[in-house]
Design a protein around this nucleic acid. Structure first.
Lengths: 357, 357
DNA sequence: GATTATTTTGAAAGCGCTTGCAGAACCTAC
DNA sequence: GTAGGTTCTGCAAGCGCTTTCAAAATAATC
């Protein structure tokens, strides 16, 4: 009834306008390859996946057919048949931070190299958002999820790992089907504080991140450890928290200044807060480093170009991303994951100076 | 032979160690829903997709079954059956730039809202990399590709659009199955230059981007237009190019200074280059804005927190990302794409000051 | 050369969902 | 009531690949 009769066209108004676009090039299937090579589809599949030995002659014929037809296996069909996809979800908190951007780039690269793809979503530092993002990924049936500095509680993560391989960064946690890339920030923070101490500073303010963030706690721990090692007392008055943003750093420093605290140096738990702090100092007419030395953490690309260039803790984000991706792949392929990241270093630039005794 | 007989286990050594993990929770299928609701799978599918009218009673029963079983359709199976996936690829040049990060976040949000996912890859400003990334996406059978400031030539893009819906940003191009979100940078650049002129500056240096980038050309065009409107001659000596990075801006400014050029203001084609330029000025002992006013373009989040806070052209990247995503969805769903982005504004901060006559 | 152990292969049954087709159920109108 | 129209709904055939299972081909053994 709905044959091609042109004069019945008006009846077709309920039909959706979408027509099946059968692009001629992209539609090479495994079956076509099989026919072309004179073997069965199963054989082609086996050659493709190395799932079984196949006579050399056939292998050659199939390979030839594949390249002749320019065949690429359809990953969707493959995922369906295998029951698992070659996609891994990556949840990042705020993609607009250059720090995470770099990590994401590294993760993406490593994943693609191994034949996976990165399905990306963001969590905005909010538990609810993160949970929603994770659900989205799960409903998309990803093969695993990488959480770059998750906000979620340990138990929740462990529970999650029961259904999907999980890789975490920025926290320590052990469990089945789960791997935490160990990037303890304590040593880096220690390094920064020690440097300031070495330069003769004694009253060193600290601008930290949110206390309920494992990573932020580590940065604080490094600061404390450095002071403790020299038997210097911790001065709560000199410590305040920001939220890892420029605005947070600005406010934190403003607070410190308004309270009339005296200090000759400040260690900010990340570069963005250091920027904000520097602006606050500037607004009060204080010069960096003449009046106050500033040290940050992360070494964002911009940090060597601000005025004055920022002394800061450098870690290879690339390595971190790489490690996370590798661990994920290992988890998916049921191998014992290993990951190593090299030690942090201190990039010494112009925002610090020795305190003359 | 390979039944469950335990004592034959040693024969199974050729079997891969991977076992089919049948997580009990995630495996609800449409068929189970159908059975639970006492209807056929087709009916469930139709209800899910609204592809046909279904008796109310059944609809209710099915909906109940769905929520009782907590069913989520398997997107992989769906993609396979429909022949197209709900994933759109996003190619971004350098994710580690905060500018693109923001755009990516916006794109992601809009895509997810519409039920799609963002498959992300990066191009690193290199044609070859970009081409490879695109191929990766195509082999993954994405439903469409968004190219955020592509490096590729028009013809290549048009060719590409024949097989996959394409959305571009940062350039103008028209063609079937392709949509370019129009974000002409000329007006923004004009705005910035006009402002400097209004402040009395006459010798305004220009640090541009790569000439073979449409977007960079627009920024240059805006600068020229502003000068031309006041019948001021273009001074090639005051113009030099960077590569949109802090380092590039630094070098460009250094070059200008070494050539002994005189200017009271500089307009950098993006914020990152402005940062670099400011550092170069600082290194020469020149103060911003006392000696030289600086204007940037992009309004990165950091720009309001550097010292001094940067006067710069602001555009809603959010809107841009949104527009790109919306256009993509329209393209995929075969609707005429429309996209509107609001006009740029100038964020006036402390890096500029009026030139006293 | 017959028999048995091995290795290769193909047929076929899915993976979970969509969709064309045609029969079933339900309405109108005569 | 019954013919003629509509509106639901189920059947069954895919989508392109993987993976049993068992038959076919080859190699090994006596």
């Amino acid at each position: 009834m709905f044959r091609q009769d042109g004069f019945h066209a008006e009846m077709a108004k309920t039909e959706p306008p979408r027509r099946r676009t059968r692009s001629p090039g992209a539609a090479v299937t495994l079956e076509m390859v099989a026919r072309e090579a004179g073997v069965s589809p199963s054989t082609v599949s086996r050659i493709l996946n190395g799932t079984a030995r196949v006579r050399d002659a056939k292998t050659v014929a199939v390979r030839a057919a594949i390249s002749r037809l320019k065949f690429t296996p359809n990953p969707v069909a493959r995922s369906l048949a295998r029951g698992k996809s070659a996609e891994v979800g990556v949840v990042i908190q705020s993609i607009d931070s250059p720090f995470y951007g770099e990590a994401l780039a590294a993760i993406e690269k490593a994943l693609i190299r191994a034949g996976y793809s990165a399905l990306f979503v963001s969590g905005h530092w909010r538990e609810s958002d993160e949970r929603k993002s994770i659900e989205h990924l799960i409903s998309r049936r990803v093969g695993g999820i990488i959480l770059v500095t998750s906000c979620l509680a340990d138990e929740e993560l462990l529970r999650l790992a029961r259904t999907t391989p999980l890789v975490l960064t920025g926290r320590r946690l052990a469990g089945p089907n789960l791997y935490a890339v160990d990037v303890d920030s304590t040593p880096g923070a220690r390094l920064a504080t020690d440097y300031l101490l070495d330069q003769g500073h004694r009253r060193i303010a600290f601008i930290g991140g949110s206390r309920d963030h494992p990573d932020a706690r580590q940065r604080l721990a490094g600061y404390r450890a450095a002071l403790a090692a020299r038997r210097l007392p911790l001065q709560p008055r000199l410590m305040t928290d920001g939220d890892y943003s420029e605005a947070g750093g600005f406010q934190a420093m403003t607070r410190l200044l308004e309270q009339g605290q005296k200090f000759t140096a400040v260690f900010a738990a990340n570069d963005q807060m250091a920027y904000g702090a520097m602006l606050a100092l500037h607004r009060r007419g204080l010069k960096v480093p003449q009046d106050v030395s500033v040290v940050g953490f992360d070494d964002l690309p911009t940090s060597s170009y601000i005025v004055p260039p920022l002394t800061t803790v450098h870690r290879s984000i690339n390595e971190l991303g790489d490690a996370a991706a590798e661990a994920m792949i290992d988890l998916i392929e049921q191998l014992p994951p290993v990951a190593k990241v090299s030690a942090p270093t201190l990039a010494i630039r112009d925002s610090t100076r020795p305190l003359r005794a």
